[in-house]
Design a protein around this nucleic acid. Sequence first.
DNA 1: GCGACAG
DNA 2: ATCTTGTCGC
Length: 320
Amino acid sequence: MAKNNRKECIHKRMRTLNLYEKCYDLVKQIPPGMVSTYGLIAEALGDKIAARAVGKMLGENQRSFLRKDVPEEEKVPCHRVVKSDGAIGGFTSEGGVSDKIALLCAEGVKIVDGIVQDFETRVFTDFKTDYPLARIRKEQEMLSREILIADDYKLTDVGIVDVAYYGRKAFCALVVLDAYGEKKGVFRAVCDVMFPYIPTYLAYRELPPIFNVLDIYRPSILIIDGNGILHPRGMGIASHVGVLAEIPAIGAAKSLLTGELRDDKILLDGKHVGYVVEKYFVSPGHRVSIESARELVKRFHTYIREAHREAGRMKSTSDF
DNA sequence: GCGACAG
DNA sequence: ATCTTGTCGC
Ligand SMILES: [Mg+2]
């Protein structure tokens, strides 16, 4: 792996960032008798786009007020988080939303027809936070300046990588082909999930498992399920992996995150950043030109599904 | 009210 | 990508 110390530090910091705990720490700040919203927690994390991810993380909360085996001070009052319009929102437990209503009622918060009464006066907004997602955006913008969009690779082999999930475990598969498209092998790695899926922050979820597999085998060029420079800050996961691991990388996404189409060209702010190839939105990540990214995905795209399958079947294998 | 929203 | 606690804009 790269021994660039600065990049090592960025990588190490990413591996230790646990957004679940950041989220739970924020929710613990909401006092009894008050509520907050998924969107406000997301803003306190640094980006409102994470609202749905906040709901997802709270759905995985293992320290709710219904648990009898968790110390009081460790409990996370996720029942105090509701929707931005005062609607009660969801709740994962035996009793579902009725458990949430009962917990709030016991704290003096009345719910009528699924709406929090006196919502405006009961909303807690005064979070103490260091806005981790804001810091991450800055990091993305900083690293994007190190992207090279020009051919700087050898084609001794090709790696195609994808990640599957089972609860808080990530399963990463790397399918390696020779330059003729012959399958040479599959490498696998697992890792605990510390970061939910948040649009435009995918790299911070999937980089740790991908780096684990690159530690086992490092192909001459990498195709990644996601975007390269086709990203609001020009720093999709393929660029992120490319720059931090100093490896040529291409992004191939199954849907369009941002940008517009003009025939088979993909434009971002009017600038040509990629191509549509088969069913993929292809953009270079690092050390590959836009044209070569297109040609390489044309040649190897059938193996993208193969990597996807390989990651998926790891979930049902007991080896990990 | 429905779709968007990398994975 | 899962196995479902969102928000905004049209
Ligand atoms: Mg994937």
